[in-house]
Design a protein around this nucleic acid. Structure first.
Lengths: 359, 359
DNA sequence: CTGAAAGCGCTAACAC
DNA sequence: GTGTTAGCGCTTTCAG
């Protein structure tokens, strides 16, 4: 038979530590929680005992007694992968630095959101909810508000909650400007469905860049594919839009700002099927800087995804410690990453500037 | 002032429900846990009251009393994204079907594993641990074993734990055979570092295919890049290996089995820099079927990642309910996905068969 | 079938 | 400073 100690290893409680260290449980608790009013030597003794016994507090007992869970949940659409993974990585890194847990709910279908929110809302389960990149059903907003749980939105905005997002207008402006300065005209745009906020904002940035450079805007130079999934932020839509452009013949733009990298992929495919080369014949700048972009040598607007994740958690923490904070909307500016698809690296002009922005 | 009810909504306990339904808390608990010995009418009454009051049990109080957490944790390397995301999706879907929670630990560096394991092992915190695709440090194995927590491995194998993985040998065999049957010779292989199990196994499958077809194996036709990160499963390594092949001149293989899609990307890039076209001049078959592969029209071996996730959880559940189960290693066979890079779609032979496997 | 009561392991308020 | 004790909200014997 094994010595009792063997078994005790697993059900060691604060009482065992207390007895062994010749103090009360309160003192042990204080030591473990770094409460100031413990004599230094007592503290040391307790610490030693706890260590020697390899004592591990029972998480759920703590959570019950403390009435907080030290857990955050993230509700995130999986289907649009890479972008989220990077943000999620930031989220997870920061959360674990804080000693919190992350519970993950992956949504494939907007209808699942409500169920997951309910679950997260279950009394005591999580201290806060991170909601990623989705239009939140009105019903859910209401529930969230009445339960009063801290919520922060990532890559989506609502007047009711804190949010972390990206400056789409600025990004589109920068991308378009880059193209204009490269000198190839006219500059067209492949956009996603205008039902989505990013699409609207990116169009705005495109228009603004034209305006600043004294170029008049033409409806014909902006096209959207008809494949609707993910609001048109998909490969097929890019392909379709570009195919439409190609039908314009010699009139077609020589440079394009495309509202996402994934659409740019499709657009480039359409081009290459029609014997047009990027960047030799046509310049392209995308948006997002997903992993694909690097492999495709796509010039694009990089969003600081990892940072967004970190910041989302920080904001959450701030709100948890002070629920009365004003609602804050934080916006990151994307940066231009120059690779080959825009043709900058083949010109002698503008190259240096462009490159210097790179890292 | 709001009616008390408003406040009660949030701190409603089982006692409130009991009082309202005129029963003891034990009965309420039984009803909520579907314990059989409750009179049907009592059950109904309690259920109604609970519903009317919108009672939500306190998760952590339950977990404390039940002495189980209904939570599984997944420790997963983020850096190799797409592959894991799909598996993770399977994991999460199944976990949430079971009403369990998923807590996520993302590892960037193998050294973090130990810390995360310790955390997960914290008494009561999780009922089981899913470990993804990593060589587990000996130290960790020992801890895992002595605490006796159920563990299941995904995309990695160890004699000590259940595992779900992929039949690398078979996959490599199928890929190589496909290439051989397409008729282009010789068939070479771009492999990853032989320190990794998948690389070893995939080489084995390649050799076996040659053998079966009466082709003698030559050392010179297998190369590995020197960029070591991720055990050579990276783009650069593929590029380097293919560059080496190109130096062989006219002697170089006309068809290649590449041990991962990401390496295939690099290989194709090297080829195209040397004016060789895929599949016009060279045939390529990859492995994994990451998202990229579809966009690149890469013929590859698809691993049923989502299914692997589901199965991992199922196995976990089985082991949780019966810790004495024999250790089981489950292996999935990858399937050949024919796209353009192998050239099959341009031949008339072999095409139909190949395509019919597609979907 | 059901109520009462004894925990689950920890924190925090209260005395000393 | 430190020990004692009363919860935290739920589950689970144990009587009846």
């Amino acid at each position: 038979m094994l010595p009792k100690k063997e078994i005790a290893t697993h059900k060691l409680t604060i009482y065992d530590v207390a007895k062994e260290a010749n103090v009360g449980v309160g003192t042990v608790s204080r030591v473990l929680n770094n409460h100031p009013s413990v004599a230094p030597e007592t503290r040391k003794r307790v610490k030693d005992v706890a260590e020697r016994l390899n004592y591990q507090p029972h998480t759920y007992a703590q959570r019950l007694a403390k009435r907080q869970s030290e857990t955050l949940s993230a509700i995130i659409p999986f289907f649009t992968n890479y972008f989220f993974i990077e943000i999620l990585q930031g989220v997870q890194d920061r959360i674990s630095q804080l000693g919190y847990d992350l519970v993950l709910y992956g949504v494939n279908n907007i209808d699942q959101v409500e169920g997951y929110v309910s679950r997260a809302l279950q009394r005591g389960r999580v201290d806060g909810i991170l909601l990623f990149s989705m239009k939140i059903p009105e019903k859910v907003i209401v529930r969230l508000q009445e339960t009063n749980v801290p919520v922060v939105l990532v890559d989506t905005v609502s007047p009711h909650f804190d949010s972390i997002s990206v400056a789409n207008v600025d990004g589109a402006y920068a991308a378009t400007t880059h193209l204009i300065e490269l000198g190839r005209r006219p500059v067209g745009m492949v956009n996603a469905q205008l039902v989505s906020a990013p699409a609207i904002e990116r169009l705005q940035g495109y228009k603004h860049a034209l305006e600043i450079h004294g170029i008049s805007f033409s409806e014909d130079l902006v096209k959207t594919g008809c494949t609707m999934k993910q609001d048109g932020f998909n490969r097929e839509a890019g392909y379709e839009a570009m195919s439409d452009f190609i039908k314009m013949g010699p009139e077609m733009p020589k440079a394009f700002f495309v509202s996402s990298d994934i659409q740019a992929m499709g657009a480039i495919a359409a081009l290459s099927e029609n014997e047009m080369r990027v960047p030799d014949d046509i310049s392209i700048v995308g948006f997002d800087d997903i992993e694909l972009a690097r492999h495709l040598k796509l010039t694009t607007m990089r969003q600081p995804m990892y940072q967004m994740g970190i910041l989302a958690v920080d904001r959450m923490v701030a709100r948890m410690s002070n629920p009365d904070l004003e609602i804050l909307h934080t916006t990151f500016s994307p940066t231009l990453i120059v690779r080959e698809s825009c043709g900058a690296l083949r010109n002698s002009d503008g190259l240096v500037t462009a490159k210097s922005k790179l890292r």
